[in-house]
Amino acid sequence: MKISVVLPCFNAMPFLEEGVQSILSQSYSNFEFLIVNDGSTDETSTYLNSINDPRVKVFHQNNQGLGTTLNRLFQMATTDWIFRMDADDVAMPQRLARQVQHITHAPENLVMVGTGFHIIAGDKAMPSSTVEVTNEKIVDLFANGYAGICHPTLAFRRSSYLTLGPMRIAGAGEDIDFCLRMSEQGLCSNVPDDLLGYRMTRSSLSYSKLKELAVGYDYAIDAYRRRTQGKSEIGIEAFSQHWSKSPTSLLSLVKRRGNMLYRESLISKGEDRRLRSWAFLAAAGLCDPSAGLRKFMRLVR
């Protein structure tokens, strides 16, 4: 079974090489590896042009954003299953093999499968994160604005993508919206094994984009609920105008800030700044109590 691995990148050095090599050294080798450089201004282009492996195809473009870049990659893929990879993450050697094994033994209506993962913060690898494995629990997490499947571990059926159409949100929320729409095509699953190192850095924290994050996630959830209730979706611009006037928008902003603070907590732990880590964790729990205990248990392990 040949698969497609796709990797978008923008100013991805110095972590890009480790991420790329973690795919090229996989125990499962029957894949094409498509990489799009989305207008990087650092040494990303130089490194990509130095790769000498027949499985790798590199494309350069002017900066167009993550959603557009992913759509281009998905459309270029030539195999039945597409596997996501992010530029700064590290795939464990058995990642592709374990997901392919899972796919070949799964029901025919499986459309998405992710894996367990651990977080890399600073120079430290955190303990593995527990992931849900049943379709119902995975979809429920997505429908409440959480990652039922860690997006860089995602593998999905190309035919289902062609049926539902491209990622349609240009920015925050595109991953939740994509996965919720994909879940309506069939079953979702996770391989529980820790098969990816998910890197967190402060450069990935975007406090200035909290409103964009909140609107994007809430739109994806609202559109999903409308579809499941047999109602028509509204456009994201109309939704955004309504959202700004809604009393629940403040709660959504606080929830997204809680997620940012939790990431700060993990990064601080990776830097051995324990007091700072606990302070951020406490603040994150106040912002999002429903997820507080789960995040607390992950941090203390």
Results as ranks from 00 to 15, higher is better:
Gly186Pro: 06
Leu196Arg: 05
Asp175Met: 01
Leu250His: 11
Asn144Gln: 14
Asn259Ala: 15
Leu210Arg: 00
Ala155Cys: 06
Leu164His: 12
Gly270Thr: 01
Leu154Gly: 09
Phe239Tyr: 00
Thr248Trp: 13
Asp89Ile: 04
Gly145Ser: 10
Ser25Glu: 14
Tyr161Ile: 05
Lys245Arg: 12
Glu136Leu: 09
Ile149Gln: 01
Val254Cys: 12
Ser45Leu: 13
Ser29Leu: 12
Ala97Val: 05
Asp80Trp: 10
Ala282Leu: 14
Leu162Cys: 08
Glu212Lys: 04
Leu70Arg: 15
Pro8Glu: 00
Val139Gln: 02
Gln75Tyr: 11
Ala291Ile: 09
Ala172Met: 14
Arg257Pro: 11
Asp272Pro: 06
Arg273Pro: 00
Asp89Met: 06
Arg84Gln: 12
Ala155Pro: 09
Asp177His: 10
Ser268Trp: 10
Thr201Glu: 12
Ile3Lys: 07
Trp81Met: 07
Gln94Asn: 13
Ser128His: 05
Gly145Gln: 07
Val111Tyr: 10
Glu264Met: 06
Arg257Ile: 07
Ala147Glu: 14
Ser265Cys: 00
Asn109Trp: 03
Tyr224Pro: 07
Pro107Thr: 04
Thr104Pro: 12
Glu264Pro: 01
Met297Leu: 13
Met76Trp: 14
Asn71Gln: 09
Thr44Tyr: 00
Phe74Val: 06
Asn190Pro: 10
Gln26Val: 06
Gly148His: 08
Glu174Trp: 10
Ser40Lys: 08
Ser189Lys: 00
Ala284Leu: 03
Lys255Tyr: 14
Ser22Lys: 02
Asn37Thr: 08
Val90Arg: 13
Gln101Tyr: 12
Gly230Leu: 02
Ala238His: 08
Thr201Asn: 08
Arg98Gln: 09
Val20Thr: 03
Gln94Cys: 10
Gln26Met: 03
Pro192Ser: 10
Gly285Arg: 01
Leu210Ala: 02
Ser277Leu: 00
Ala214Tyr: 04
Asp38Ile: 06
Ser244Trp: 07
Ser160Ala: 15
Cys188Val: 11
Asp175Val: 02
Gly235Trp: 06
Leu164Gly: 09
Glu271Met: 05
Val111Glu: 07
Ile138Trp: 02
Asn63Pro: 14
Thr163Pro: 10
